[in-house]
């Protein structure tokens, strides 16, 4: 690789598609995110990891514009989501795809119609063109054979692949995955992981993966952010994370039962709860 090539590569890499700066967010009085900084560059697969309920999904909702940050800015493709009106938001969303945890396929229409849905809603393409495009997307996830099935006839892994085909139907610049690995068997797990990497590389997407599956996601991601209690506690490439000796990251990566995240949910002392030391007795 020549120097000039390398430079150009770097400049593309520098191009941040998603930029989150000092974002604070809470549902009512309950704070969820407390000062998040995060960047996803074009062409990268970025993972956001953390234990359940730490605010990962909320981050995706912020990027998708479903909720607005209390403080700080969220920028996608240079546009600040806090300043967009409903129309601008919809315009931006047409260039985003989102894969929901259980696929969120429309249960009353076939797999084919599900993938065709965004095309029919947003384009005036002829039915033959739509057919070609849909079959192409289904082919990318290896499910052309399932085109005429109803979503209820699909397994969990297949449903998620169909949902992925639907998410990339409009050739988005950004695809967000909400727990793409949850509840999958090992084979589907590998298939889904591979798909995410392959689609990101071949379609020139940027992928944001929210997950708590360390082993599978570390195989495919470029960069990882660790979220705990609403702040980013660690970040780095997959290799850096695996080598990290931060107690939280270590506990998370190796799945230890006790550590900085305690086994016990905060509670009064067990003995007291049983009434052994209670004054009421």
């Amino acid at each position: 690789m020549t120097a000039s090539n390398n430079d150009r590569f770097d400049s593309v890499q520098d191009d941040a598609l998603v930029e989150i700066r000092d974002v604070v967010f809470g549902y009512g009085a309950r704070p969820v995110l407390q000062g998040i900084n995060l960047t996803a560059r074009r062409g990268q697969v970025v993972a956001i990891m953390g234990s359940s309920g730490c605010g990962k999904t909320t981050l995706l909702r912020l990027i998708g514009g479903q909720v607005r940050a209390t403080q700080g800015t969220v920028r996608v493709a240079g546009e600040s989501l806090g300043e967009l009106d409903a129309e601008g938001l919809y315009r931006l969303r047409r260039r985003m795809g989102m894969l929901f945890q259980f696929g969120a396929l429309f249960t009353d229409i076939t797999v084919f119609d599900n993938v065709a849905y965004p095309l029919r809603e947003h384009t005036d393409l002829a039915e033959e063109t739509i057919r070609d495009l849909v079959l192409m997307k289904l082919n990318a996830v290896g499910l052309t054979g399932a085109a005429d099935l109803m979503p209820s006839a699909l397994s969990g892994g297949m449903a998620r692949r169909v949902a992925l085909a639907r998410a990339i139907a409009l050739d988005p610049m950004l695809v967000m995955y909400d727990e793409p690995f949850a509840g999958l068997d090992p084979i589907s797990l590998g298939v889904t992981g591979n798909l995410i990497r392959r689609l990101t590389d071949t379609l020139g997407l940027t992928s944001l993966v929210v997950t708590h599956d360390v082993q599978e996601s570390l195989k495919i991601v470029d960069y990882v952010y660790f979220v705990s209690a609403g702040v980013i506690v660690a970040e780095g490439t997959a290799a850096e994370i695996l080598a990290s000796d931060l107690p939280y990251v270590h506990q998370f990566v190796h799945g230890e039962a006790d550590g900085p995240v305690p086994f016990h949910y905060q509670a009064p002392a067990y003995a007291e709860d049983l009434g052994l030391r209670s004054s009421r007795a």
Binding site: G64, Q66, Y90, R93, R94, M98, A104, L105, T107, A163
Partner: peptide
């Protein structure tokens, strides 16, 4: 209710389709 529970309405919104209208 089921469309909401299975995130179909949110999915629609993320596809830039307004579920109220559609």
């Amino acid at each position: 209710g089921l469309m909401k529970a299975t995130e179909q309405l949110t999915a629609m919104e993320m596809m830039a389709v307004n579920p109220i209208a559609r």
